[in-house]
């Protein structure tokens, strides 16, 4: 059961999952379009099978994994996670997947490795947001984590949501979920995972470095230049005449698990 598995990690289980329809019909996936309704509406032509993920870089066993092989080797477990978007809204999402750390341990991380870089898929013929788009992000979408963040047991490679294979709009067939960071760190439709000794470039940071940092840890005290991060709108609750809001918590409420990763760092500078 999802809440039990989650609470075993030491954080409150009393979270109400966001309605499934909201999870699958309100999200950002710029490869399909800039509106939050675009991913669900415009991802019908995307083919998440067959799928390979290349694992390479500073590892003992570089390998191209078929998705089925990944599933067979690492299986999946339920994780009920809060999701805090950098746009100051939030959801609670029941994911299924496996720990990124398990994959990295299987690959054998070499000494000297410091970061993990992720690359998403480029398929303009299936992803309308990648066609033209004078003003869009650069493709492929890229993301990165520090190695210790990547190895943290909360860091998940999700292959399912709400008990079914990930729908195209949510990052099929495999995506990253890092619950203490803003949602844009959760790169979707991953094709490559590279272990490296250099801090990798990340898409939103390239787009607007003063607005989106490499770390992107959820932090109510560091505002986005154009809006406050002190509170968040809870999607799926509230009414037309009053949004449901709650205060945002440091590290999205996962401080107990992850604060030690950032000891001694200035979170205002490394936002």
């Amino acid at each position: 059961d999802a809440p039990v598995a989650a609470s075993a990690r030491g954080w409150p289980a009393a979270e109400t999952p966001t309605p499934r329809d909201d999870v699958t019909h309100y999200n950002n996936f710029y490869e399909f379009g800039m509106e939050k309704s675009d991913p669900a509406e415009l991802s019908g032509g995307f083919h998440p099978r067959p799928w390979q993920v290349q694992v390479d870089g500073l590892v003992e066993h570089p390998q191209v994994w078929d998705l089925d092989a990944l599933n067979a080797r690492f299986g999946h477990e339920d994780r009920l996670y809060r999701m805090r978007c950098v746009e100051a809204w939030s959801m609670v999402i029941p994911w299924q997947g496996f720990e990124l750390g398990a994959l990295l341990r299987a690959a054998g991380v070499k000494t000297g490795a410091k970061y993990v870089a992720f690359t998403s898929v480029v398929r303009p013929s299936e992803m309308p947001g990648q066609r033209g788009g004078l003003f869009s992000l650069r493709w492929p979408y890229v993301e990165g984590l520090r190695l210790d963040e990547a190895m943290h047991p909360l860091t998940l490679l999700a292959t399912g949501v709400y008990g079914e294979a990930l729908p195209a709009q949510n990052g099929a067939p495999i995506r990253l979920v890092v619950p203490w960071k803003y949602g844009f760190k959760g790169i979707k439709s991953i094709t490559r995972i590279t272990v490296t000794d250099q801090q990798p470039p990340t898409s939103w940071n390239q787009m607007a470095p003063d607005e989106y940092g490499f770390y992107a840890n959820v932090n109510p005290d560091v505002d986005h230049p154009r809006w406050s991060q002190s509170s968040e709108q809870i999607i799926g609750e509230g009414s037309l005449f009053r949004t449901a809001r709650r205060p945002t918590r440091l590290f999205n409420g996962y401080a107990e698990q992850v604060a030690s990763l950032y000891r001694g760092m200035d979170l205002r500078k490394d936002f």
Partner: peptide
């Protein structure tokens, strides 16, 4: 406003 009250404006009617 009518659609918002009828809850047919999607996940974030506001």
């Amino acid at each position: 406003i009518a659609q918002g009250m009828a809850n047919t404006l999607g996940p974030n009617p506001v």
